[in-house]
Nucleic acid binder design. Structure first.
Lengths: 331, 331
DNA sequence: TTGTACGCGTTATCAG
DNA sequence: CTGATAACGCGTACAA
């Protein structure tokens, strides 16, 4: 591999001059020409490790979340990747954490300096994670609900407003007996959806009991199917909100199998509005949480922070939007 | 940030000793204890840039493909990520290339040494890409059809066998007038599917004309919908194979809208067997191309190559498998 | 077993 | 505007 020294020799100038040409500092036209020719000649590429060691920047940004099998995170990754692609930064992906310990271990390796910034969307609420993040010596952008006592750049979606949108819509179409099929309450989204759901029902003076919330084991299709299977009296409800679209897909599968008509017997609403929602039959009404957009915003917050390390932290709220389809309003 | 020097001072030993302890070379028990204590004390983490500069390894592997919005690539990414998570290597993601030029540019940056290996799944067949790959000074694993004149580790799926599986199945259920809705023939998968389809029809002495192959603009749901819309005489066919599941989803949407019954009027088969296939109604028969498994294999090939740079290159063929669902056999 | 000293490829400072 | 040279943090001959 050609080094900067080889280029210098070939061009008949000093190493310093080559460096200047590369980094755009002034140089005589003739010098620049010869250096560029030599670079071309040797196919020189600056070594990123040496550069990183010297300037203390890796030009890499790390994106961390728990599970790439969730399409909402894929959307987020796309958003981040897109925003980063027009910058000098590369994207490092850290995914598939199966436990808090793994996240902790990963967070500790951040001290090695292989990334200039961390965009993280932790699904579990754990004090260790919060502490570790706050001790990180690098810029952090948090995607999701900000834990108590943390002050970093943050983009989050007003998910309570999303639940409100869903419930208002259900009320409009005359539904009053509404259930929530929730994901695990050990997760942040699970907890928040539950709280928002309770609050919204009470606000609208709708029937609410413990039976109104069914806990699924995961945010997956399979879990949705199992959760709805376990409901003793499905007839008690005339509408179901699911904590994400995959859960809703599982519910829909169950309904088709058991000849329960959607939406006439039961109206169904999902959350996330992934592509799947428009492909199911009936198509699925869903609350769009704008994951791709949040990813873009997160990446731009990071780029902005990197360019401007001292600005105060920013919190950006993204508004959900309801996409009405056949699962609530027959076409 | 604590450096190795700080640790050495704190432990009262030389930096060489600290380095030895970290890298597992022999040291007196007492020395090791003091070094470890100092490391703990200072929260020392070795600087990865300095390490990379010295040992000429970045401990990073780059995964490149064209579009993260294709769930098949997400599966592949999961496979790679999973195989890498138990290694010391980090995963760098490069996606969303919109043109050959972008890929070329990306390939050129590989010379900077920020990655120890490249796993690449190029969708476009372009001589420049092949040339560039062959000139790369680092291990490369190619996922997909190997272009002429390249000799690198490779994992590919026998997609012709996949098309055969689909056609054999259709023949078994009595279909004879089969169409292919293909993706762009500017892509490798598009070209291969087309060739395999023609060959399989002829082998089975089934009717084939230019009208049997309908070109979609992309591998997307929308493109599938549009492609089927453009077929003049849909009744001519009693079965459709789609180049991927998303195209098939678009076709299914069209059929539902136009009251064409699947499978009685038209049998439908997709390719990839992404989760979507089991969620559509009717559920979609699909040829599983084992993307996640290919990702795992690719990553393992890479790890193995990195550990053993001089072994001859390996080509691994993955066999597709047909997953029969309601779109060909009503339940 | 331990310590000293050098070099990895860059950037940045400072004299010319 | 240019060139020599000192870091950056780490690994490792080589000497002790």
């Amino acid at each position: 591999m050609a080094t900067i020294g080889a280029v210098a020799k070939q061009a008949g100038v000093s190493i310093a001059s080559v460096s200047r040409v590369i980094n755009g500092t002034a140089a005589r036209a003739d010098t620049e020409r010869r250096v560029r020719a030599a670079i071309q000649d040797l196919g020189y590429q600056p070594n990123s490790a040496a550069r990183a060691l010297k300037v203390r920047q890796s030009e890499q940004i790390c994106l961390s979340f728990d599970d790439l099998s969730n399409p909402a995170y894929v959307l987020m990754t796309r958003g981040v990747g897109q925003a980063l692609s027009s910058s000098k930064y590369r994207l490092i992906l850290s995914s598939a954490f199966s436990s808090v310990e793994e996240i902790v271990k990963h967070l500790e390796t951040m001290g090695r300096g292989f990334a200039d910034g961390l965009i993280i969307s932790p699904i579990y609420a754990d004090a260790r994670i919060t502490t570790l993040i706050s001790q990180l010596k690098m810029p952090v952008v948090l995607v999701g609900t900000m834990p108590e006592g943390l002050d970093v750049d943050n983009v989050y979606v007003n998910s309570a407003a999303g639940v409100d949108l869903a419930i208002d819509h259900l009320i409009e179409i005359g539904r009053k007996r509404i259930a929530l099929i929730n994901g695990p309450v050990t997760t942040n989204p699970g907890r928040r959806r539950k709280a928002a759901f309770e609050k919204a029902l009470k606000k609208n003076k709708l029937a609410f009991s413990d039976a109104s919330i069914i806990q699924a084991d995961a945010f997956s299709t399979q879990a949705g199917f199992e959760a709805v299977t376990n409901i003793k009296e499905l007839k008690k409800f005339d509408a179901i909100i699911c904590a994400n679209d995959q859960l809703a897909a599982g519910v829909m599968k169950f309904c088709v199998d058991n000849e329960i008509d959607i939406p006439s017997d039961i109206a169904l609403i999902g959350i996330d509005n992934i592509e799947l929602a428009s492909l199911l039959r009936p198509t699925l009404t869903s609350v769009d949480l704008r994951a791709e957009e949040r990813g873009q915003i997160a990446a731009n917050l990071m780029l902005n922070r990197l360019a401007n390390p001292d600005r105060p932290s920013k919190q950006i709220e993204v508004q959900p939007r309801l996409v009405i389809r056949q699962s609530t309003v027959a076409s």
